[in-house]
Design a protein around this nucleic acid. Structure first.
Lengths: 165, 165
DNA sequence: AACTGTCCCATGCTATCCCATGAAAGCCCA
DNA sequence: TGGGCTTTCATGGGATAGCATGGGACAGTT
């Protein structure tokens, strides 16, 4: 599965085309479908989410879980798989941003790709900046620190008995 | 088995014909009956459900399971298999929407195809929009996020005895 | 002979492919 | 260490093929 890191801002031309950052492409190259990325509107932000085939396979499998209530399943089927658009890269490594997705995210001339490990997001750069500011305020207000989070997670994993991912 | 993704809105001409989205057709091409789709009225919505031959085979087989109580079996046999209409694609990849089904879903000039992985739905576009709005409100109210659902599902899978994805 | 449903052909639009250009970054050699 | 060279990328435009859509012809049916 591809890993996406860092942030890149690329232009969107008037055909709606946009280069996938070279780093992302290198990561995609090792997946089962190197020439395709999957895009969908984010559930929680005015932004797009993206992932590779392998990630979606995992997601698809987790939907088979009987522990999910049918509301949640219906929602995911409608909002993720129903909105999912497979987009293929051209020989230059570009994708065409589907119109409705670009509109949803308010993307016009530029698109900010932000890596989020197994997935990435695509934002209108201004909206991303605003969003980051909001998050940063929360960090300050809640006094969050990285080492604290790591400590908390590993303590919880230990309590579960050790097989946590 | 074919996988259906994304949403497409196509016109219905005055003969009742309607193009199956090209992506759906490509997916159908790999199934055991590429030129046929099966349609039936949805149990839960004013919409149509569709699938390929292979999916129905699986469904049919699962009806043989002794774990199913007879009410459920009866319901599926009556409302799915009893209402099922096989529809064949013409050389342009179009189907004719059976009148009673189009009426049931309130489809007149346009039809929205929404992929749901192994099946798809056909909605009157306005009705679909309303339905999506309802679901989106639920997402906000319940504060649902995708990563949360994936985490929940994979944790459940681990507890069932697997070693976690 | 009229009607319904199927098949085939025509058309315009949109998306996909291919080639060209310019800038930036890395590399090599002096 | 610095300058020039090469390669990689991002970006742009034009040509081409695929697709959605519409109309007409033909055949089967009643």
């Amino acid at each position: 599965m591809a890993i996406f890191l860092s942030t890149y801002v690329n232009k969107v031309d008037r055909k709606g085309r946009c280069s996938i950052p070279a780093q992302f492409r290198q990561s995609l190259a090792k997946t089962s479908a190197p020439g395709t990325v999957y895009l969908w509107p984010s559930l929680n932000h005015q932004a797009l989410e993206g992932a590779d085939q392998d990630y979606l396979d995992v997601l698809s499998e987790s939907l088979e879980s009987p522990d999910l209530d049918s509301d949640e399943r219906d929602m995911i089927e409608t909002f993720i798989f129903g909105k999912l658009i497979p987009v293929s890269l051209d020989t230059e490594g570009r994708i065409v941003l589907p119109k409705e997705l670009a509109e949803f995210a308010g993307i016009d001339e530029e698109a900010a790709f932000i890596g989020r490990r197994k997935t990435f997001q695509i934002w209108e750069p201004g909206a991303l900046k605003a969003h980051e500011q909001t998050l940063r305020d929360q960090v300050v207000r809640k006094d969050i620190s990285l080492s604290q989070i790591v400590a908390k997670a590993s303590r919880a994993a230990a309590n579960r008995g050790g097989e946590g991912a």
